[in-house]
């Protein structure tokens, strides 16, 4: 087990460096001069050259990458062009709000996904299965940003039950787990939860079906075990894979929140990314993507190790 963990961690290092390289290169695939957002429109040639030297853009790319990586490792992702604040501070504050949203969505999406998936797999080819799979397929096919709009139309515009946008009193700064804040979370969380709900349902349904058709289940039943006990075996066998899928989905929710956060003006990393793109705030864009991708890589690592440690069938050699 220990060697497996070490190997898995060592394997992550080249990935992390490549991710950093991709984020670094993002600025350089940008059409035009990377200085364009900083330079005043009427800047002189000398000023441009001066800034180019100040930002290190006159050095060869590999040197620039090395310097950038060195700084990034030490927690310095540069300063936002729009606000002048350190990128890391901005990103971490926003990521906190995205984590809140993702966790709320995960609780909703995973509970319903597990429930629907187990029911559909257990009562395969009955009406229960048909209903559950229809919900799941709708969940994975719906453009979630549109669903967000529809929910706002129903619950905010027509019924006036819930607020349409924002994150409650105090703005993005102070979050609290009381209704004054939570009511802002309801619609974005439901909207975020539909895709993971659909995917977890489909995965768990397939898993349950596979496990129930195996011989050992027959043996358990022949032994006279009650169905509830058989079901416990099914859950035990499905758990590692289901957990891995859920871990991955959590990562997607954290990294792919831009559309929903834009619809609901939720002050998370997605909204930050959105403003970075449209203000051409390249250091902020680079930093946000790097942090989100690293979160995703780290989450994948944790999921892999967790899966290997609870599932004795995974080869650790």
């Amino acid at each position: 087990m220990f060697t497996y963990i070490v190997r898995r961690i060592v394997y992550v290092i080249p990935i992390v460096i490549s991710v950093a390289l991709v984020c670094f290169m993002l600025v350089h695939i940008t059409p035009g001069d990377p200085l364009v957002a900083i330079l005043p429109a009427d800047a002189s040639q000398e000023l441009a050259a001066q800034l180019r030297t100040a930002y290190g853009f006159d050095r060869p790319l590999p040197v620039q990458f090395g310097l950038w990586l060195w700084k990034a490792v030490h927690g310095d992702l540069g300063h936002s062009i729009a606000t002048g604040r350190p990128v890391l501070t901005e990103v971490m504050r926003a990521v906190g709000n995205t984590v809140t949203l993702a966790i709320a969505a995960a609780i909703i999406g995973f509970s319903f996904g597990l429930l629907f998936g187990l029911l559909a797999g257990y009562f395969r080819d009955t009406w229960i299965d048909k209903v559950a799979t229809s919900i799941a397929i709708a969940g994975v096919s719906v453009p979630h940003y549109w669903l967000g709009m529809v929910l706002v139309i129903i619950f905010s515009v027509q019924l006036s039950w819930l607020p349409a946008v924002g994150a409650g009193p105090g703005g993005s700064g102070q979050w609290g787990w009381d209704w004054e804040h939570m009511k802002y979370l309801v619609l974005p969380a439901i909207t975020t939860s539909v895709i993971p709900m659909g995917i977890v349902t489909r995965t768990v349904r397939a898993l349950t079906g596979d496990i129930l058709s195996q011989d050992f289940v027959e043996a358990l039943r022949a032994k006279g075990l009650r169905e509830t006990h058989v079901f416990r075996h099914v859950i035990k066998n499905a758990a590692p894979t289901a957990m891995a899928v859920m871990g991955l989905q959590l990562g997607y929710m954290l990294g792919g929140s831009i559309l929903i956060e834009t619809v609901f003006s939720w002050p998370g990393s997605g909204l930050l990314l959105n403003s970075a793109i449209f203000q051409r705030d390249l250091p902020l864009l680079q930093g946000t993507i790097l942090v989100l991708a690293l979160f995703f890589v780290f989450l994948n690592l944790v999921v892999d190790i967790a899966q290997a440690s609870i599932d004795p069938r995974i080869k650790r050699g």
């Binding site: 695939i29 940008t30 864009l285 994948n300």
Partner: peptide
């Protein structure tokens, strides 16, 4: 390496950078 990015993030990163 591409799998290290959630697909929405990758799509947005590239189109955000390209314009």
């Amino acid at each position: 390496v591409f799998y290290a990015f959630p697909s929405v993030l990758l799509a947005i990163a590239i189109s955000g950078a390209l314009g």
